[in-house]
Simulated assay, not measured.
Amino acid sequence: MKLSRPVSWFLLAFGVWSWFIWITFAKNLWKDGSGLAFDGAGDPTAYFWVHLALAVTSFLLGTAIGVIGFRGARAARRSATETSAETSTTAP
């Protein structure tokens, strides 16, 4: 399957965006002082574990989507370079 250049860039941007958003969320979760993420004794609550699992899953999916986008953009670039090279060698 060949991805178009705009789709590849969108996927790559989504992967980067996902990392940015979820790193910020994980930092805020770790620093939570409202009592949702940690109980009075400082132990993690179910809220913390569920949201940590969401963050880790999003990191993994964001990485996979970003890699697909990166590979697609690289392949589109390589294809454009090869096409222009073929055109210049076959022109009189």
Rank of each mutant, 00 (worst) to 15 (best):
M1P: 09
L3F: 07
R5V: 06
P6E: 10
P6G: 07
V7E: 04
W9G: 02
F10N: 00
F10M: 12
A13Y: 00
A13D: 01
V16N: 02
V16H: 01
W17Y: 12
F20Q: 09
I21V: 12
K27Q: 08
N28V: 02
N28I: 02
L29T: 00
L29P: 00
K31R: 13
K31Y: 10
G33E: 09
G33N: 09
G35V: 04
F38N: 02
A41P: 01
D43Q: 10
P44M: 07
A46W: 06
F48N: 03
W49P: 00
V50D: 04
V50P: 00
A53V: 09
L54H: 14
L54G: 13
A55T: 11
A55S: 12
A55M: 02
A55E: 03
V56R: 06
V56Q: 07
T57P: 00
T57S: 14
F59N: 04
G62F: 08
T63L: 13
A64D: 03
I65S: 02
I65E: 01
G66K: 07
V67N: 05
I68G: 04
G72N: 05
A75L: 14
R78Q: 13
E82A: 14
E82Y: 06
E82T: 00
A85G: 05
A85Q: 14
T87V: 12
T87S: 12
S88D: 11
P92D: 14
